[in-house]
């Protein structure tokens, strides 16, 4: 089996089981809806304040739902005793990592799309002005989040207090991605061209590269036993 094929199989397995149960996606959709309520109550009806805070709020929503979703990334393997199955996969284990990252990325992007639509409807925000730019920024930010998130989720899967430890480890490491993504999203929503935030995009790309590479190199050490 080639490396790409093993990656694809892990991704396919995750997508299929999610499609059948829809456990995570349903819960996350509801969670996103609740977040929207919270933001509304916390900020009130002040349009000006809302517009200024929008990019930050948007990413806060992405991250909170991402934390909930990623925290469950290795739950199926752990609860159904499939961990040994992962270990028995022949060849380089980083294929599993990449498959898991891809699965989490797709899941997060789906939830983010839902959140964006909800924001557009309930806060009356025009998101359609520069869809390509927005997709580039959100994609880069989410990839970095999923890359580290998957690594840490595998790491904390066997720890007693994983619900606490997972965000505590992940959030500070994610500060560069968060800052870059919020700044770039802000610029896009204000109609600025991507070149105006080129350095932020460069930061996001560099962060994604580093996180993914470290994940590929070290996932072996996390998976064993």
């Amino acid at each position: 089996m080639t490396y790409a094929r093993r990656t694809w199989i892990v991704l396919w397995k995750d997508l299929l089981s999610e499609r059948r149960s829809k456990e995570t996606l349903n819960a996350l959709f509801f969670f996103a809806l609740l977040l929207l309520f919270l933001f509304q109550f916390a900020l009130g009806a002040d349009r000006e304040r809302l517009t200024a805070a929008l990019p930050g709020l948007l990413w806060l929503g992405f991250i909170l739902s991402g934390l909930v979703g990623l925290g469950r990334a290795f739950l199926a393997e752990r609860e159904n005793d499939c961990w040994e199955g992962l270990l028995l996969v022949p060849g380089d284990k980083s294929a599993i990592y990449l498959g898991k990252v891809a699965g989490n990325l797709i899941l997060m992007l789906l939830v983010e799309a839902i959140l964006l639509v909800l924001f557009a409807v309930f806060f009356d925000i025009d998101l359609g002005a520069h869809p390509i730019r927005l997709i580039v920024v959100i994609g880069l930010g989410t990839l970095g989040f999923a890359a580290v998130g998957t690594l840490f989720a595998a790491m904390t899967a066997h720890v007693r207090a994983r619900e606490v430890l997972f965000p505590v480890l992940l959030l500070p490491v994610q500060v560069p991605v968060l800052l870059g993504a919020v700044k770039a999203t802000e610029a896009v929503l204000l109609g600025e061209p991507l070149s105006a935030v080129g350095h932020w995009l460069g930061l996001l790309a560099a962060a994604d590269t580093i996180y993914l590479t470290v994940g590929v190199l070290t996932f072996d050490a996390i998976l064993e036993a």
Binding site: V148, L151, F152, M155, L169, V173, P176, L203, A206, A207, I210, Y211, V214, T218, A221, I222
Partner: peptide
């Protein structure tokens, strides 16, 4: 693993 991720994260 965390020690490596953390150190590489510091310049970022």
């Amino acid at each position: 693993v965390l020690g490596i991720v953390a150190a590489l994260d510091i310049p970022l």
